[in-house]
Design a protein around this nucleic acid. Sequence first.
DNA 1: GCACTATATGATATAAAGTATCAACTGTCT
DNA 2: AGACAGTTGATACTTTATATCATATAGTGC
Lengths: 157, 157
Amino acid sequence: MGKAPIAAARLPQEWRRIAEKRATQAGERLTPARLAAYAELKASSKPLSAYELIARLERRQDRKIAPLTVYRHLDFLLRIGLIHRLQSTQSYLVCDHPDEGHQSQYLLCSECGSVDEVESASVDKALGNAASARGFTPQHATVEVTGLCGNCTGAVS
Amino acid sequence: MGKAPIAAARLPQEWRRIAEKRATQAGERLTPARLAAYAELKASSKPLSAYELIARLERRQDRKIAPLTVYRHLDFLLRIGLIHRLQSTQSYLVCDHPDEGHQSQYLLCSECGSVDEVESASVDKALGNAASARGFTPQHATVEVTGLCGNCTGAVS
DNA sequence: GCACTATATGATATAAAGTATCAACTGTCT
DNA sequence: AGACAGTTGATACTTTATATCATATAGTGC
């Protein structure tokens, strides 16, 4: 079995560099398979479920891929902060702002499926206050708002 | 088949009345099976997964219950606002404040599993601002913060 | 009370999402 | 090249949730 290079979705150089940097910083390796998963998510206009991602990778690479394999890639990408998992839809999407120390909120349009990633300091602060008022020490916040995006607001019958 | 009354967990009268009121207001029926599911969740000190709930109901009623049945009861209870689903743990818990028009946030302790339901107006407001700044019309917000509760903060090695 | 209708429940099967275990490969360091 | 750590693959399985179709039950008009 010669090593056929893994076919991957097109990924802008800029994003590839960010991914490499993050991996290196975390002391992890950005392998072709991991990169392929990342590129596939990046190429999608919408968040993908793990199994949608598997299907797309299988189509592109023309071979079977075990769920566990992709879940490991997703774990890796989550771990180094390149992607995010939407809890309310059990799907995955690339981080728009893969900077350090971000705490994001997500606006999910129930009409068109688009997702807007927001970093609101005031939301962050309000949450911090609410938590500490209860003696609670926050580690991670899941903030996902469903509703209608700008395009879809008013466009619904 | 005589109708054996469904065995249910003890539910304080006050909560039962609230449940009946909410069901009536929604024009829905609070059947024994639905009430049993509600009582079982209420009796639990922690959120339950759907299948944990099924197991408990089966034990209490000493019979098999199909998943779909319980999911329907959960849907009902969610619909009329008596319970809430935690997205980050895929589990269900009774609403502490089953008042109208509540928008709650949840503090989940990763150490002891306890959950604190919070209604912070400032979080709500900050979220509303962030959304409208993007032309986004919110319908529902999922806000779940994991961390350490008051009891567990500092108690961890 | 008795049929009528809408809703709720039950039985069975299946889909979707995620994990466990163990073996084989790959890349890096020496 | 040899050894080690980390990564991937193959197979099976668990957990979470839904589809379909038949049966039962509760409220409504007579």
